[in-house]
């Protein structure tokens, strides 16, 4: 993992279904400043299929996405410029 991918905060959304996992992700991002990285843990299935796209549509960048041993996913998000 590169230095720029060091997460400023982490949200464990394992066990949280859609859309509340996106709500918690947005809450996590709202506390960061542009350029900061948020690490989010998501369940396999609909969560990992839906959250990354929603995050991108709001102007943030998906830095990486990889599956963990328990089957859940680690998503690294760089906060983008907040759209007005």
């Amino acid at each position: 993992m590169t230095e720029t991918m060091k997460a400023a905060a982490k949200k464990d959304c394992r066990g949280v279904s859609c859309p509340m996992n996106m709500v918690y992700t947005k809450v996590g991002l709202s506390k960061l400043t542009t350029g900061d990285v948020l690490e989010v843990l998501l369940d396999d299935g609909p969560p990992i299929n839906n959250v990354p796209g929603s995050v991108q549509r709001e102007g943030h960048e998906i830095l990486s996405k990889h599956q963990l041993e328990d089957g859940s996913w680690q998503l690294m998000i760089r906060k983008g410029v907040v759209k007005k």
């Binding site: 509340m20 947005k26 759209k83």
Partner: peptide, 14 residues
């Protein structure tokens, strides 16, 4: 967060 989730999800509200 539950109560206002549908507002928070909206890009223009959040």
């Amino acid at each position: 967060l539950d109560r206002y989730s549908r507002h928070i999800l909206l890009g223009d509200v959040g």
